[in-house]
């Protein structure tokens, strides 16, 4: 019996989104990043074009993340005290495609930084690296609305990736992105219906679809990753079927979720049955990323340089064209 290869004919594809803007485009980035455009399921090159590979954004805090475990902090080194130096090292030494900056210190409990101070931090990171930058707040809506608006205005034209627009709080940030030419992260709580609904709401405000990145929320390895995996697959299938409101590329805060897991944090002395802590943590983050990339994630936000290295290599291997 001859093999008759099954190729799905997909009427739709992922929206193509470019992040960052060069001088000619009104920003100061030396390079931009384009994600999306995939016309097939993840890495099935034989079935459709994959014009852009998934990328890795490395996560930088605007305050020293003292609460992170020592293995992770040591891997990053002293730069965790200086967001600009941290970002620079991510790009130059560890090969980050872009930077994901969390303005955590805006939280009254974590520094109570003013919007002006936050803007300064963003500017310093932009000055330190040439790659596109994502900026998110401290997850307190009232504060983030002020902080992100200030950042959007001060960095007008940079085409930052700004977050988070949520179902309960999207007006201010979407408006700021539209006015000052940035891209917005639309975040939904592990729910594909809310994901779609939010995209409808914010595109109705007038922001074009190619200025939206979906954050479907993710669960980490061992802690609900299967929900994210299936939402990722359903979202991609929807996009391939032509549903424009599910077609934006997705971002996942892999490092944030992976490093929450007990398995990534407890020592081998405490849990001898789980083996070396450093190795375990790195692989916990890497497998969280590789699994979600298999379900269609376009931007993985990561923390550990070694995990980043592994996932970059994985992506490279998977981007080798296949043919059937």
């Amino acid at each position: 019996m001859a093999v008759q290869v099954l190729k799905d004919r997909n009427p739709g594809k992922l929206t193509t989104v470019t992040l960052g803007a060069t001088k000619e485009q009104g920003g100061t980035r030396t390079k931009t990043i384009t994600v999306g455009g995939d016309a097939c399921l993840p890495f099935l090159h034989f079935e459709g074009e994959i014009p852009n590979r998934p990328v890795i954004a490395m996560e930088v805090f605007d305050r020293a993340p003292v609460e992170w475990n020592d293995e992770l902090k040591n891997a990053l080194g002293d730069v965790i005290n200086d967001p600009a130096a941290w970002a620079k090292k991510c790009v130059e030494e560890w090969g980050a495609d872009m930077i994901f900056l969390r303005l955590q210190s805006a939280d009254p409990e974590l520094g109570n930084s003013s919007p002006e101070k936050c803007v300064q931090t963003v500017k310093s990171v932009l000055a330190a690296v040439g790659v596109p930058v994502a900026v998110v707040g401290c997850k307190i809506d009232e504060i983030d609305n002020k902080v992100i608006s200030a950042v959007a205005e001060a960095c007008a034209g940079e085409n930052l990736l700004l977050g988070f627009a949520t179902q309960d709080n999207y007006n201010t940030i979407v408006a700021a992105c539209m006015v000052h030419k940035h891209t917005v992260i639309a975040q939904s709580p592990l729910d594909i219906n809310i994901c779609k609904q939010l995209n409808i709401l914010i595109t109705e405000m007038g922001i074009p679809a190619d200025r939206i990145i979906i954050d479907p929320s993710i669960g980490g390895l061992g802690y609900g990753i299967e929900y994210s995996y299936s939402i990722g697959e359903r979202g991609r299938l929807g996009a391939l079927q032509g549903d424009k409101m599910l077609s934006m590329p997705t971002i996942g805060t892999v490092g944030f979720e992976a490093w929450k897991a007990k398995e990534a944090n407890v020592s081998a002395e405490e849990f001898p049955g789980w083996g070396d802590q450093a190795e375990r943590g790195i692989l916990w983050e890497a497998i969280t990323a590789s699994t979600l990339i298999q379900s269609g994630m376009s931007i993985a936000v990561m923390r550990h340089p070694e995990a980043v290295k592994l996932v970059k290599k994985n992506i490279e291997e998977l981007m080798v064209p296949s043919s059937l």
Binding site: G275, E279, I287
Partner: peptide, 16 residues
């Protein structure tokens, strides 16, 4: 064959 290397795969497998 290290515990630290296999445990992430067992977690992924259970989840999926």
């Amino acid at each position: 064959d290290e515990k630290s290397q296999i445990i992430p795969l067992t977690a992924q497998r259970i989840n999926l």
